[in-house]
Each structure stands twice: as structure tokens, then as C-alpha cells.
Nucleic acid binder design. Structure first.
Lengths: 162, 162
DNA sequence: CCGAATTAATCAGGGCACTGATTAATTCTT
DNA sequence: AAGAATTAATCAGTGCCCTGATTAATTCGG
């Protein structure tokens, strides 16, 4: 009998939190447009003409996922992809009028949804909630890229044992 | 220019938190066994012989997802499925010796991982972190099943306009 | 007892998320 | 200028997550 209590596991809690959010989004915001899709629309409202990779960076989606999400938004005619004349590898992304309209509509609903979602917490607790989650996420993110190793210890060694 | 700040959106934060956790799990715990899979193993350590649906309920996985997860664990020979003689719809689940071994090993690593994950927070902050996430998740979960409507307002109406 | 409602599991289908490999275009280096 | 390294995007493959529909077994009601 060595089972652990999952409610003390942040990963399990994070998963449940996301599921709870998914549920609320689906009922209160949209069944067509997902939360990550909205994030992409939002990024392109803020900075029209971004390329795909950069959008992914802004909203926290990796290269594969951002490609799928953008393809779906393109299929729905919410954004346009244009080959960058300056750099033939990139596609420049820009919302269509429909895309702008959808973004505007969902922005309102999302605000309402967030209120309901956070209703169980007081205003101060909400601030703490954001702060704690952000700090944990940022720290874990930071572990990924050593962010210029201070000592630059040569442990990977290029051209080593092949 | 009506873009919103995603860092004030709990859903976006929840997604980032889960991604951060995924990353850490993958590097510190296991590349083979995922966190949901571990949750299932754990549930079966606590209560051997559960059926599939109940396991899903315990760990927060819906009927479709739990089926996939269990099928993967079965393929890896970490659990056995036996038809319930009392109720021919159910399968009773039980860990194999390998399953128990894996659970034991991952329990240790998971504890280490959780420490690293939560390291940016003080002990008191960690407590608050758990509490806040749990309250938000529980509340949203609660919205799904009205939990016996107090007034039993007839608004759905059975046999209405068809 | 028997048909109707319920329930456990599966299937089909869509979407998010990651890794590793590949392709095409650009930039760096010599 | 030509080859090497880098970079944006795509593809293949795996796994999580949800909904709606279906199938098989059980329970409920008359």
C-alpha cells in the first residue's frame, strides 16, 4: 500500500485545472474556436504580420502545434498566410475581417468566462493565484534553456564520440 | 487594437503550467510512462480490482481517455484486465508485478520532481497554491453537474418541442 | 417474464502537445 | 562564390482530451 495522494501533486492539479477551464470555455465561450486558437487570433491583433514561429512563441505553442492551429484558422478563413518577400522561408500572418470580428466577439465572452472561473477566489486571492502559477511556470520554462550557462562548462562537447 | 493580456487569463496560465509540468516530468521522471498513466497505476495500488470507469473517475479521465490509457498500460504488461464475473459489462483491473515495480520506482522520482517544480515557492505559498487551484477546479467541476438542483426549476423540459 | 431504461465499454472524429526527421530558403564562413 | 550551418515550415508518429453514437450486459417496471 504505497499509493500517494494525487491532490498534493502539482501536475495532477494542473491537469484538472485545465480540464475545468476547457469545460467552461466550451459552454461559455465557443464550441468552434478553442482557447489556443483565440490566443493566436489575439497575438495577431496585437502584432499583425507576425510569422508562424513567432506567434507560437508569443502564445506558448511549439512549432508543430502552431502549424496545426494556424491551418485550422486558415481553413475557417480567419487569417491569411502570405509568403514573406524578404525571407522565403516565412509566412506572414494577418487576420481577415472575419478573424477580427470573431476575436472581438470572443473577447467579451472570455472576460465573462474568466469572471465565473475565478469567482471562488477573492480579488486578493486571484492576484496571488496568477502570481504563483506564473512563477512556477516561468521557473520550469527556465530549466529548459540554461539561458547562457554562466560558467559555460563544456559538457556536451561537439565532435566528441560522435 | 483590442488585444488582451493573456497573462491575466487563467486558462492560458493553466495551459502553460501543464506544459511546464510535462517538460519536467519528461526529463525527471520518465519518457515512457506519462503522468496520467502514473495516476492510473497509483489508483490501482490504492484500490486493486477497480473497474475502468471508476479508475477514470478517481484520476479525472473521461471514459474515452481512460480506455486509451489503460490499453497502453496493458500493452506494456503493467496491468491485467479481467471480465467481472458478477457484471459482464465491467473489466476488473489489477497491476502486474511489473506494474507495481514501475509504480514504486516512479513514486520516488515524482517526489523529487515535485520538489523541483515547486522550488520557486515557499512552503506557505505551496499550500496556498494547492488550495487555490483546487478551489477553482472544484467549483468549475461543480458547474457541470448541477448536483441536484435545489429548486428543481423545470427549464429543460422532457418531451417538449422534440 | 419481458420490454424499456440504464450502464460499461468501444468507436469515430476533431483538437492540443511533444519529439525526431526532412525540406527549402537564408546566412555564415572560408 | 561555394559549401556549411542555421532556420521556418512540414511530416510522421505517439499520447492526452473531449463529444456523440453504438454495442453488449444488466436492472427496472409493469
Amino acid at each position: 500500500m504505497a499509493a500517494v495522494d494525487l491532490s498534493t501533486h502539482p501536475g495532477h492539479l494542473a491537469r484538472r485545472l485545465q480540464q475545468a477551464h476547457y469545460l467552461l470555455w466550451n459552454t461559455m465561450v465557443s464550441e468552434e474556436i478553442t482557447s489556443p486558437q483565440f490566443a493566436v487570433l489575439n497575438a495577431l491583433v496585437a502584432e499583425p504580420g507576425l510569422d508562424q514561429r513567432t506567434v507560437g512563441e508569443r502564445v506558448g505553442l511549439d512549432r508543430s502545434t502552431i502549424a496545426e492551429v494556424i491551418s485550422r484558422l486558415g481553413r475557417r478563413a480567419l487569417l491569411d498566410k502570405v509568403r514573406d518577400p524578404q525571407d522565403g522561408r516565412r509566412f506572414l500572418l494577418r487576420l481577415t475581417d472575419d478573424g477580427l470580428r470573431v476575436h472581438r466577439k470572443l473577447t467579451v465572452r472570455t472576460a465573462r468566462m474568466n469572471q465565473v472561473f475565478l469567482a471562488p477566489l477573492s480579488a486578493e486571492e486571484q492576484t496571488v493565484f496568477f502570481d504563483l502559477i506564473q512563477r512556477v511556470s516561468d521557473a520550469a520554462e527556465g530549466l529548459r534553456n540554461p539561458a547562457e550557462p554562466l560558467g559555460a562548462q563544456h559538457q556536451g562537447l561537439p565532435g566528441g564520440a560522435r
